[in-house]
Structures are given as structure tokens and as C-alpha cells.
Design a binder for these strands. Structure first.
Length: 322
DNA sequence: CTAGCATGATCAC
DNA sequence: TGATCCTGCTAGC
């Protein structure tokens, strides 16, 4: 269930705690056993996120490709060296929601007995990572990884946390800026060619990689765009603003480890920030909009729940005649 | 305790 | 469009 921000945090986490180290890789559950043997005992050289997919590169040029799907999650544990290496707060678990570090600071005694269905387990000298419930977990060649990535649209988080390759090093600030600009242009160009509703398009990973149901709903609200508006009816400036907003809130997600899209002035100070005050429309159906008097609408579209505010995100025709 | 649901994607028809 | 896969949380009995 994680959207792109979580996967970018994971890419950074793997870089931090396992980068450059030899890993014992196994499949306690068994379903990943054969593939695990291909990379067992190899050194981790790169950790990269593109959209919702994670690519871990090993010294023998094989790539571990992970997609968490709806329920996948990684759990972590280790000694103080392991936890201390994490720049994202040494999470105990990263999946749909992120759980903070373990409260008990007991001594590290190696990975625990696998509990439940652990598809893959990575173990270094200092810690371990368990993967449960992924929709994809496979070992592929670099060529196959390139093919997988070619199927994905531009990632708003290109150049953000998680871009790492020990062999090539981090890109320069100029490289990252150029990549980000290219991604933006590509996004705008692709939108101009599509007639599908923008709300559907934002979920299409081949058009735009990393946005899921929450970011879709929230950015359309923030940009005051009707989710049913055809992509090619969105003006270029508005498409550019949409991209910029997605980049902004997803980078916040990478920083915070959770999705918070409300502006400070739009929160109810009485309640806790997360999750009660984190969203404008997501899971707020029938509640009053934070900006206008409308009730938040909910409709099932393409098997996913679409949330929007009919008042703040008016139909294109209505907007045009104003 | 259980059923139902969830920030996903693929495949069949 | 509907069925299916995978796991874990929670609302409701």
C-alpha cells in the first residue's frame, strides 16, 4: 500500500544500513528460495526506487526487484551500529504505515525466528530485514531491470532520497535538476496527449510513477482540478502546477514518513495532526470540506475509491464560464 | 473471533 | 469489469 514516498525512504534505508555490505539472503517461507540463492552472499552495491518499485543491485550484477503491492511491508532490526546508520529514524517496519524504532533497547542477538510468512530475509553483520506480502519479489538481470523501469512513467521523486549507486556515486545537483526538469516536461507532454480523466491518469504507473490513491485525491484537491476532467483539457500551466504540487507533497512524504497534505491554516488545531488533520479529501467522504461548505464526495472508479470536493473541484465547463 | 477492508496491479473474458 | 493474489489491521459481533 505504500505510495512512492515510502519506497524512496526504503531505498535510502537499504543504502544506509546495508550499502556496501555482504548479505545473507534467504526465504524462510520458501517461495523465494531459488531466486534467493542467486544473490545470497553477494555485496549490495545499489539501492534505487522508481515509483513504487525498489531495485537492489548486487555485486554479481543481479537485481532484486520488489513491489510491495497492497500489503507488502519490510521489518528491520539490528544492533546500535545498524540503527545508527539509518537516516530515516531506524524504522521497525515500513509498509502501509511506518512504525518507529523499537522501544526496548535489548541487546542484538541476530535475527529473530521468522514469524508468519517471511518471503525474503536479508541479514548483514549488524542487522536484518524481513519482507512480507510483496506482490513482486524477483531476481532479474540489469537488462530486465531496465525494461521494467522503461514501463514506468516519470517519477516525481527523481533525484530525491533513495537515488544511490555505489558504483556510480550520487548524481551531481545539476544532474538531479536536469532529470527533474525532464520528468516534468515528460509528464506535461503525456497529459496533453491523453483524453482519459485526470483522476484515472494519475493512478496509471506507466504515465506517472509513484502516485497512489491518497496523493491522487489530495493533489487534485490542492490544485482545484475536477478528477473527471480529460487530461488534454488541462492547460499547460495547470499541468505544470499539478506536477509541482505532486513533487512538493511527495517530498514532504519522504521527509515525514507519512502523507500529510493539509496546509497549516486548513487544519483543525483541536485534533491531532495525523491522521485526523492530514488530508483534505481522502477518507473524508460526507464530511465537510475544509475550505468550502460542500460535503466530500466518494465514487468507485476503476475499482478504486475516488474522493473529491464538488465545490472546490468544479466541473471544467463550470470553471470555463466563470 | 471474524469478516471486511486497504495507500496495488495483473490477468481473463 | 470482475476475479485473483498477497497480509495485517480493525470494526463489529
Amino acid at each position: 500500500m505504500p505510495e512512492g514516498h515510502s519506497v524512496h525512504r526504503l531505498a535510502r534505508q537499504f543504502d544506509d544500513v546495508f550499502g556496501g555490505q555482504v548479505l545473507a539472503i534467504s526465504s524462510p517461507q520458501g517461495r523465494f528460495s531459488d531466486a534467493a540463492k542467486l544473490i545470497d552472499g553477494q555485496k549490495l552495491l545499489s539501492s534505487h526506487a522508481h515509483g513504487k518499485q525498489l531495485f537492489l543491485g548486487f555485486e554479481n550484477d543481479l537485481i532484486l526487484r520488489i513491489h510491495l503491492g497492497l500489503y507488502g511491508a519490510w521489518s528491520f532490526g539490528g544492533d546500535e551500529h545498524f540503527s545508527g546508520a539509518s537516516s530515516i529514524g531506524a524504522p521497525r517496519r515500513v509498509g502501509e504505515v511506518e512504525q518507529g524504532p523499537d522501544a526496548d533497547q535489548g541487546s542484538y542477538d541476530g535475527p529473530p525466528e521468522p514469524v508468519g510468512q517471511v518471503r525474503a530475509r536479508l541479514v548483514s553483520a549488524h542487522g536484518w530485514a524481513d519482507l512480507r506480502g510483496p506482490s513482486a519479489c524477483e531476481v532479474i538481470t540489469e537488462e530486465q531491470a531496465l525494461i521494467a523501469r522503461a514501463k514506468l512513467g516519470p517519477d516525481p521523486l527523481v533525484g530525491a532520497a533513495g537515488e544511490f549507486n555505489l558504483a556510480k556515486g550520487r548524481g551531481t545537483a545539476e544532474d538531479v535538476a536536469a532529470d527533474a526538469l525532464g520528468a516534468k516536461k515528460e509528464f506535461i507532454a503525456r497529459l496533453a496527449k491523453k483524453k482519459t480523466p485526470i483522476g484515472t491518469a494519475l493512478m496509471d504507473q506507466s504515465l506517472l510513477a509513484g502516485v497512489g490513491n491518497i496523493y491522487r485525491a489530495e493533489t487534485l484537491f490542492r490544485c482545484q482540478i475536477d478528477p473527471f476532467m480529460p487530461c488534454n483539457e488541462l492547460s499547460k500551466p495547470r499541468a505544470a502546477a499539478l506536477w509541482d504540487d505532486i513533487v512538493s507533497i511527495m517530498n514532504d512524504g519522504v521527509r515525514d514518513g507519512k502523507i500529510i497534505t493539509t496546509r497549516i491554516e486548513d487544519r483543525n488545531a483541536a485534533g491531532p495532526l495525523w491522521p485526523e488533520n492530514a488530508y483534505y479529501t481522502y477518507q473524508r467522504q460526507h464530511q465537510q470540506c475544509r475550505i468550502c461548505d460542500s460535503g466530500i464526495a466518494l465514487m468507485e472508479v476503476a475499482a478504486r475509491k475516488l474522493y473529491w470536493c464538488p465545490g472546490c473541484q468544479p466541473k471544467a465547463r463550470k470553471r470555463a464560464t466563470r
